[in-house]
Simulated scan of single mutants.
Amino acid sequence: MASEIIERIKAVLGDMVESVEEGKGVVHIFVPVDKVVEAAKKLKEMGFDHVKDVTAIDYPKENTIKIIYHVSSYGDLELSKHIVGLGYSVPRDTVKVPSLYYVWTSADFQEREVYEGFGILFEGHPDMRPLLLSPPVAEQRPLRKDFVVKEDSIFRQ
């Protein structure tokens, strides 16, 4: 079943596809960062009508952060059986990447979470401010692997 959706997506995205990873019910399609908006629009045209999640994964040893949008469909029963991860990699010192908010408005809060946790600005997002954390905490990029947690115990001896 996954091979069918992979072939359909590859046919639609063509040479934009850099790599494909399968696992645990999710198909991940990786494209170059400069093609992610175009790829997202094509996936939406296919029927992937909403973002379930946006996540980032920090790889400090490789000096890379992967950003992945997990998308699916409410309107197409066949596509609703699939979760597709549309992802790309950027260097860790990247400050701005394109927002997919105007392709899928359901990416709104998830892009803000990635911003506050990893310090990646989604260019073109209409409200790029921290969602849950105070700005001083968000500026520390607390979800990156090199973030140091200060221990503060309420139990003092």
Rank of each mutant, 00 (worst) to 15 (best):
Y69W: 07
V95H: 11
L86R: 02
P91V: 00
Y74L: 13
Y69F: 12
T55W: 03
D58K: 10
H50K: 12
E78P: 03
H50M: 09
I83F: 02
L79V: 05
A56I: 08
T64I: 14
H50E: 08
D58T: 04
T94G: 04
L77G: 01
Y101F: 15
Y69C: 03
N63W: 04
E78W: 15
K66F: 04
A56F: 07
Y88M: 07
Y74K: 14
P91N: 08
L79G: 08
K52V: 14
I83R: 12
T55A: 15
T55M: 14
E78R: 13
L86I: 05
R92T: 02
D76G: 06
I67W: 01
K61L: 14
I68P: 00
P98V: 10
L79D: 09
V97N: 01
Y101P: 01
D58S: 11
T94N: 05
P98E: 06
D93A: 04
G75H: 08
V97I: 10
Y101V: 05
P60S: 10
I65E: 02
H82W: 13
Y74T: 04
K81N: 13
V95E: 15
K61Y: 13
D58H: 12
P98R: 10
K96I: 04
V97D: 03
H70C: 04
Y101H: 14
P91M: 00
D93S: 12
H70A: 06
K96E: 15
S73Y: 07
Y59C: 01
I83G: 01
G85K: 08
H70E: 14
S73L: 11
K61T: 12
S80N: 14
V54D: 03
V95F: 01
D76T: 06
V95N: 05
V84D: 01
I65D: 03
Y101D: 05
K52E: 10
D58P: 11
G75R: 13
I57N: 08
V90H: 03
V51R: 05
P91S: 13
K61V: 06
S73N: 09
G85W: 04
T64G: 02
L86T: 02
S80C: 10
K52G: 08
P98L: 11
Y74Q: 07
L77S: 15
V95C: 00
T94M: 05
I83S: 05
V71L: 07
S80H: 10
Y69E: 02
I83T: 15
N63D: 15
P60F: 12
H82G: 00
D53V: 11
I65H: 06
S73G: 11
H82T: 04
